[in-house]
Design a protein around this nucleic acid. Structure first.
Lengths: 172, 172
DNA sequence: CCTTATATTTCGTTCGAACGAACTAAATAA
DNA sequence: TTATTTAGTTCGTTCGAACGAAATATAAGG
């Protein structure tokens, strides 16, 4: 890792040195990726005929691999009755399945439907192909660097999300 | 640019060589960023009390700077009556304003409310601070590389989105 | 001027998501 | 065993977003 920004010699105030330029470029690129991701996810979900909530829950299930319905209630902020509805819709479309928890038969475990466990649908194919092609233009070392940055950026964005959730809602 | 993936010597099939490893890592990082972005946007919009549609239209308006209502109808796929509703809600919350087009007084131009024209709200502060700190760990050259990759990735994701939109919806 | 086309809004309706309350089933405590 | 708590579902209601049709206002053509 390079030294921290604080220790770096500052170009004269106001004038945009190379550092300011590149920081701005990274910020813009991040925003562009973010917007693109939101649009892409939106298109994917509408293509599956899923509302935003259903899509979100499906994401939670896929991330977890196997979760109880109650856990989804906790993580999503929805009420139990609503989760039941979401799961009904997703199950009806064959995107996940409910399994009785044999250890505690009150519980219902939810899992991605067979075939969607890991990656997602073949709808991703178009994006994955394009990104693979992009990677072809970079060396392993360069990709390591890029991946490291993106991993950290994602982690921090989740942090920022949690921070937002933690604050009390402004006013309604 | 490095040579394309096709020309690269393949490690024996099945065994994950360093190339496979790093490609996988990039893919995972991309997915992590994507998910984080979706969650962050979701939290931001719910924090502003906006539905997904309102948030999307607001994004279109901010991207365009100034658009007519009809143009939003075209770009969003919503019906005119719905756009009117969206704009009512956004305007009531002070996030944008309607201005009569003096050149053609049938039209209504929509603009981001003063103070939200460029970047977005101060809600972004937490995220921006974290990302700036992250950038502090990298040199200018490294950040140029990262930014270039992310710009291209975003462009390709938009392409993939357009491709999805172009295809006929599967079945309903 | 009068007709027709375009841009947006108004109104009333429809549809689905989220909810509270009541209910069933299973685990746990007494 | 019986009582109590926990997990999830069912049912009926509410609320808002998206819509079609009709209304309004402005522009453009004959």
């Amino acid at each position: 890792m390079a030294d921290s920004a604080e220790g770096r010699p500052e170009p004269e105030e106001g004038a945009a040195g190379p550092r300011e330029g590149v920081l701005h470029r990274v910020a813009e690129a991040g925003r562009a990726m973010s917007d693109a991701a939101v649009l892409y996810h939106g298109e994917l979900s509408s293509r599956l005929g899923l509302g935003a909530t259903d899509w979100k829950i499906l994401g939670l299930v896929q991330a977890a691999g196997s979760v109880s319905a109650g856990e989804l209630v906790r993580r999503s902020g929805l009420k139990p009755a609503s989760i039941t509805g979401v799961l009904d819709r997703l199950e009806r479309r064959g995107l996940l399945r409910r399994v009785r928890d044999e250890a505690d038969r009150r519980r219902v475990l939810v899992e991605p439907a067979p075939g969607l466990e890991d990656g997602r649908v073949e709808l991703f194919e178009g994006l994955l192909r394009r990104l693979a092609e992009l990677c072809g233009h970079y060396t392993d070392a360069e990709l390591e660097l890029v991946a490291g940055f993106m991993e950290e950026a994602a982690r921090r964005q989740l942090e920022a999300t949690a921070e937002l959730q933690g604050q009390e809602p402004p006013e309604r």
